[in-house]
């Protein structure tokens, strides 16, 4: 029951074709469809559902919405009641609001991000199939990312957004970053057994810090860095490691300036795992474990 994962993100693109080229040739996602409004749908090779990434033409960069997949249509009823009971306005979108997607709930989180919640999406299958599969498929392009992993959202009031995801949408917290007074700067939240599916950081309302693609290990991160550099993709920082989450990472920017990450490693948190706390005086080590200090762009640049 409940939310299974971050099912998708819809991203605004200043030059749609440049973005499609980038997400296919550099990230290694494949296009699964395009609708009459010009939205292009993509998925990673190890994802079963029709798409996890939607690219939409826009005159601005940034996030259009996130999508959360729940296990059954009953969950949509449950969360509609729960959200409305807390005074959140919830709309219903008919099936087909995105290619292959069933009926969906549509609401705004306290950080100004729109959320789509859905239970059903056409499954088109992974590249290796579900019967006696190989570990990975031949012919992957670029980084060859298998799947979407997580997103980091900015919110003026990080505590309020975190409460929303934990109390209303039943996320758990793996780690948090706090000021010396104990005020929340950032929170890492999960519904899967990964260290984060959604993270929240204090920052400009409605904006996105990055969204991330999963990779296997440090070797894959190194290969991704080569691909990124060979394609003249603009790097923010990395390859490096996070203290927070223990993740192995590179941050870089898509053709519209939206920050992407490739993420590997981490650990398995559980709902009963004690929350790990990082204090503001250790923010450098927490965010960039090797460098031990922030770069200027990482906590300034949002789209």
């Amino acid at each position: 029951m409940g939310i299974m994962r971050l099912g998708g993100v819809k991203i605004r693109c200043l030059d749609l074709q440049a973005s499609v080229d980038y997400y296919t040739k550099v990230i290694g996602f494949e296009v699964t469809g395009q609708d009459k409004d010009g939205n292009v749908y993509l998925k990673g090779w190890d994802e079963f559902d029709h798409h996890s990434l939607t690219l939409t033409p826009s005159n601005r960069a940034g996030l259009e919405h996130i999508s959360l997949k729940v296990q059954s249509p009953d969950d949509l009823v449950f969360y509609r009641n729960k959200l409305e009971g807390a005074g959140v306005k919830v709309e219903t979108l008919p099936a087909g609001s995105e290619m292959g997607m069933g009926e969906a709930l549509w609401f705004e989180d306290p950080g100004g991000h729109w959320v789509k919640m859905y239970a059903e999406m056409e499954q088109v299958g992974t590249k290796v199939g579900a019967l006696n599969p190989d570990p990975w498929p031949p012919g992957l392009q670029g980084i060859g990312a298998p799947r979407l992993d997580h997103i980091l959202l900015a919110a003026e009031d990080a505590q309020k957004s975190t409460d929303f995801y934990m109390h209303l949408l039943d996320f758990w917290m793996s780690e948090r970053l706090v000021t010396k007074n104990g005020d929340l700067i950032a929170a890492w939240l999960f519904r899967t057994n990964t260290v984060h599916d959604i993270a929240i950081i204090a920052g400009p309302q409605g904006k996105m810090h990055h969204f991330s693609f999963l990779l296997d290990d440090w070797n894959e991160i190194r290969k991704a860095a080569d691909v990124i550099a060979m394609n003249d993709v603009k790097i923010d920082i990395g390859p490096t490691r996070h203290g927070i989450s223990r993740g192995l990472t590179i941050y870089f920017f898509d053709p519209s300036g939206n920050r992407n990450e490739t993420f590997a490693g981490g650990y398995m948190p559980f709902p009963d795992s004690p929350v790990i706390t990082w204090t503001e005086d250790e923010i450098g080590r927490g965010i960039f474990f090797f460098q031990r200090e922030l770069n200027e762009a990482f906590t300034t640049v949002f789209t």
């Binding site: 200043l14 030059d15 005159n59 601005r60 960069a61 940034g62 603009k234 923010d236 920017f253 898509d254 053709p255 519209s256 300036g257 939206n258 920050r259 762009a297 300034t300 640049v301 949002f302 789209t303």
Partner: peptide, 25 residues
């Protein structure tokens, strides 16, 4: 910043002269 026209941290004003601009947010 992003160096791709999305984040805006490199904004400045052209006081004189001509520039060609690409897509920005």
């Amino acid at each position: 910043g992003c160096r791709n026209g999305g984040c805006g941290v490199c904004k400045l004003r052209i006081a004189a002269g001509q520039v060609e601009t690409g897509p920005s947010s």
